[in-house]
Design a protein around this nucleic acid. Structure first.
Lengths: 160, 160
DNA sequence: AATATTAGTGGGTCGCCACCCACTATAGGG
DNA sequence: CCCTATAGTGGGTGGCGACCCACTAATATT
């Protein structure tokens, strides 16, 4: 090959990301976020679960039983999709659905012991992913990052 | 409603995100990243472009002409998809494709003036999104975040 | 009692993304 | 030359996430 035609690209940094992109926090956020999401999703998939499943379990564990419509509001999912997630979690034995006796249209969803156990494991998985992804940072830096991200997250539509 | 059935959820924080999730940097990263990605994609779509188009333009602007296979290696896309992106960019007049005379299998892709102009605009869009998403942070904090993300990004597979 | 509203379900669409395969054209090594 | 490898292309697949609509059951409204 040698010098060959008009193709530049010296060869050393053949795989380097364009600085134009690296200078964009937007890009970095999107890229690292995707990596985090992807890896977590992969691990959850190993257990037959998806990200929404974990979110629902977390909501139930943190705030107690919800009517499905409340889960919908809290998590911002489509009601129809929520029904499917609830169905899936129920068939896995992680949540229990019972008709609300006061308003029989409603279905109250609550987490089971198995669900709590599963959530604990999912949480561990998430932290493992975190350790992978944030490997280049010191513990203090991770804290800093976490706090900054929390503020950014708080500014997004759908979180006070 | 009153006490009613098992439904807890006091009512005030009905839309709050579960702390179990908020405590995970993984989650925050994924969430904020998705927001950034989504908004940028939305803006690019307004110009008939996608994220990969921008990445390719950036690579060409930053490193000069590439054979398609080099773009594939640098950006980690599938060769087949790269062909489509190149095709799309060419038909928009943002890149020029010429057969490499030395190795006629190769197609050398280079950015055009129109392409550079477009990239500049895309960059501006990206920065606008950045301002939106990072609104809660001070300029110094944004810098800190950027640096941390850069380090994290550097640790991901595909960037030395 | 008639009507409107709400909760949950089932079913389907659409766009995106990543991936894979078959195929052509060219190049290079024995 | 023959055979293998490489560059690019076209076409197609499968998963996923978001969304939307039609429908039932139950509740509120008047």
């Amino acid at each position: 090959m040698s010098g060959a035609a008009g193709s530049a690209v010296s060869g050393a940094d053949e795989r380097a990301t364009p600085p134009t992109l690296l200078d964009l926090s937007t890009y970095l956020l999107s890229r690292t976020g995707k990596a985090a999401r992807g890896r977590l999703a992969e691990r959850l998939a190993g257990r037959g679960l998806r990200l929404w499943d974990m979110a629902v379990l977390a909501a139930l564990a943190d705030f107690g039983p919800h009517a499905q419509r409340d889960l919908v509001r809290r998590l911002g999912v489509d009601a129809s999709d929520m029904a499917k997630v609830a169905d899936h979690l129920a068939s896995a034995g992680y949540v229990e659905r019972i008709r609300d006796t006061a308003d029989r249209r409603r279905v109250s969803v609550s987490i089971t012991e198995a669900g709590r156990a599963a959530l604990a494991e999912l949480d561990a998985e998430a932290r493992a992913v975190q350790d992978e992804v944030l490997a280049p940072l010191t513990p203090e830096e991770r804290l800093t990052l976490h706090e900054l991200l929390r503020r950014v997250h708080g500014g997004l539509p759908g979180a006070p």
